[in-house]
Amino acid sequence: MSKVKTNSWQLLITMTALSITISLYLIFLYVPSERIMGIVQRIFYFHVPSAWVGFLAFFVAFLCGIRYLARREARWDAVENASIEIGVLFSTIVLVSGSIWARPVWNTWWTWDPRLTTTLVMWLYYVASLLLRQMVEDKERKARFSAVLSIAGFINVPVVFLAIRLWRTIHPVLFTTEGAAIEPSMLLTLLSSLLSFTLLYLCLLLIRVGLASLEDELNNLKLLSTLHSPEGVE
């Protein structure tokens, strides 16, 4: 690994650690509890950034999918796959934290709110697309299918959201689109938390892509050790 690469990697790790520490301070010590919901409302600062990262991750996968189909370079597939895995992870956090939050506040574990439902549908779809990867032998075909799926999935997100919103015309509106409803201290905490999660996403993405290239190298070595000379195939 080059020196520049190592340095910027260390910088990213440091920034992420710092940002997470600050966010944790803001969330647990600085920001006041919400008047009606009480302490449980602080899950908001994990829930919303996780949702953001999930969305960002699927968006990155969508871009990488297009890029892969246009260029056919294996690294775009590696980034895309890593991003989907991380997206699924953070979507899981969204669903779980949403449930934990909904229980005391709405007195139910689950509500068919458009945002939650869209997340659930997306989660199911991307888990299925990861499963599909397992089911395809050929590496190149796996990458192509995966690219098409990540493009289709992301394009479909707004349609799913619209459909679910139309379906549930009466749904609990938690956050209106006008950001003015949120108190400045809460906004600061939320922004800091968003930054931390985004940095964390970048770290995880880089680590996962690095891991994938190590896996690749390992397979290569295994192959070389079984075959003395590269053998042709019909």
Partner: peptide
């Protein structure tokens, strides 16, 4: 067209198609 080229063939299609087709089903 993708699912028939996977190991699980018949199983793969519904688990991909149903989440994608949620808008069609609802509408």
């Amino acid at each position: 067209a993708m699912a028939v080229n996977t190991r699980a063939r018949e199983v793969m299609l519904p688990i991909l198609l149903f989440p994608i087709a949620v808008p069609v089903l609802i509408a």
